[in-house]
């Protein structure tokens, strides 16, 4: 005699598989929501912005009329800003990573630095803006300059570079280091000629991703006083400046039907920059990724 009713069991199993199928559809739908939103966002930006795209848009400065305004100051400002961020944050970030991975003794200080970097990564970007406003604008008296913006942004992306460089350094197998040491190389020789070249692709990828974060950030630069409209290119690092996201923001907040279209055109240019940078990062990762 069966312990359970066969019919009952059959029904239960049917219910369970039905539940499974329903939830699979739900989970699948949820996944597509993210993809659909991404597609809509891109479609929306393209459909609104392509009309305003032209060579004049890239060559012109900001202007009081939408059909004369252009993104030139923003494009150049963003590139300068990225230059400063690259110099400062890559040197400091990679050095920090080398110190933590190769030199630091395990101890309280190292753990503290490590935890501190994790926490910095979670600090809202606008708070970095406040730091920059106090220290770079007022204490060091750099004013509302390109240098202020660059240094503020460098501190903001520093944790990203440190963490990605650490990961790249960690992926270098210890056999390589030991072989180098066995040949009589000193610690620094090993690091500089063996470990760094092996970790370089990972570091470059991480740095490019960090720079692409920097090029899209708006809030901290608003706080440290990037100008919304500027009619000449910055001559030096202590000149005033604007960047693409700030110009886009200023166009979004202007009244009138034509400014949003201009903002969309600006967004297209910004996204093209991001696309190029991310493509380079992915290509480098794929080309040089070596699994030991």
């Amino acid at each position: 005699m069966p312990l359970r009713n066969q019919d009952d069991m059959y029904k239960r199993r049917k219910r369970r598989t039905a539940k499974n199928n329903i939830f699979r559809t739900l989970f699948f739908t949820a996944t597509t929501v993210g993809l659909i939103v991404l597609a809509m966002l891109i479609y929306r930006v393209l459909s609104q912005g392509t009309g305003s795209l032209s060579w004049d848009f890239i060559r012109n400065f900001a202007a009081p009329y939408p059909d004369e305004a252009g993104l030139l100051a923003g494009i150049v400002g963003s590139l300068y800003l990225m230059g400063i961020v690259a110099i400062f944050s890559i040197v400091v970030g990679v050095s920090t990573a080398i110190y933590l991975e190769e030199y630091a003794k395990k101890g309280k200080l190292t753990t503290f630095i490590q935890m501190n970097i994790q926490n910095l990564a979670g600090v809202p970007s606008v708070v970095f803006g406040l730091l920059g406003l106090t220290f770079f604008v007022y204490v060091l008296d750099f004013g509302y300059s390109l240098l202020t913006g660059g240094l503020t942004m460098s501190l903001l992306v520093l944790p990203i570079i440190v963490v990605s460089s650490q990961e790249a350094l960690r992926s270098v197998p210890s056999e390589l280091k030991e072989a180098s040491a066995a040949m009589g190389a000193s610690k620094w020789q090993t690091i500089f000629r063996v470990v760094l070249p092996a970790a370089l692709p990972g570091m470059i990828t991480g740095s490019i991703l960090a720079l692409s974060r920097a090029i899209g950030e708006t809030a901290p630069l608003l706080v440290v006083g990037a100008a919304t409209a500027i009619y000449s290119l910055p001559d030096s690092v202590v000149d005033s400046y604007t960047v693409m996201p700030i110009q886009i923001y200023s166009w979004i907040s202007k009244p009138g039907d034509e400014w949003p279209l201009l903002a969309a055109a600006g967004i297209i240019i910004l996204l093209i920059f991001l696309l190029i940078m991310n493509t380079i990062a992915v290509l480098i990762r794929n080309k040089f990724q070596r699994r030991y």
Binding site: L41, S212, G216, E217, T218, P245, I248, A263, L271
Partner: peptide, 12 residues
């Protein structure tokens, strides 16, 4: 989606 600048989301 995580890499899109927030100003773009604001516009959206």
């Amino acid at each position: 989606l995580a890499g899109i600048p927030t100003v773009v989301y604001g516009f959206f």
